[in-house]
Each structure stands twice: as structure tokens, then as C-alpha cells.
Amino acid sequence: MDLEDQGAIKATVEELGSDDIVVILGSPDPDAAEMYAETVTLGDPTYAGPLAGVSLRLPVYNIFEPEIKEQIPPEVYQEQVAMMEMVLPAEEICARVRAVREKAGVSS
């Protein structure tokens, strides 16, 4: 993840506290989704940015995951996201993000 963006996430968590924060991803690729999920839970896996060694342990989900999708009014989901769910390898992306949550012990 871009180093500036890691800094922005860190600053947001410092300002608001991590209790009520959730991260929602829109990554196009399973590897990228996994890396983003790791960055906001266990810390930057590339050890390059402000979140290196920082375990924010934020609950992180991809927008396609059923527990998120079911909370979005169907007409909004249809208009904003449905096509990309068809286009991208959605199942694999969701599985990888879920695996990171389990590895990090982040509550679902």
C-alpha cells in the first residue's frame, strides 16, 4: 500500500481510536486485497511504510463479502458494485481477506 495512504490510515485511527473503525476494500486482485488486509490488521508486510510493525487489528472486509453485501440496499449495490463483482475474481478476493481476518484474530 502506498506509504502516504498508510500514514493517512494511521493518523485517522490515532485521532478517532480503533474501537468503531471498519475498513472496506475495493481491490481488483486477490494478492492486493490480501496485502491491504494485512496492512490494516497485522501491519505493513513489506516493512516499508508507517504501518510497518504496527498492528491496528482493524476489522477489514471486501465489499463483495456476503456479511457486508447483505447490509447494503440491493438497488445501491446493484448500481455501484454488482458489475465489478461479475468482472473481478470476487470469490478468491473474499477468501483471502477472510483468511487474513482469521489469521489476525480480528472479530467478525
Binding site: P28, D29, A32, V87, L88
Partner: peptide, 23 residues
């Protein structure tokens, strides 16, 4: 792009156009 986790950009675009075709 793929080794950097950005996927295959043209392929995603073609799948998008195909999905439009499906709709």
C-alpha cells in the same frame, strides 16, 4: 501490472464490457 497486484487492466475492462452486453 500483475506482479504489483493491479491485475490485468485490459482484461477487467473487457469483462466489464461483456457484462454490459449480458445486461
Amino acid at each position: 501490472t500483475e506482479p504489483a497486484g493491479s491485475g490485468n487492466v485490459p482484461r477487467h475492462n473487457y469483462r466489464t464490457i461483456a457484462s454490459l452486453g449480458v445486461m
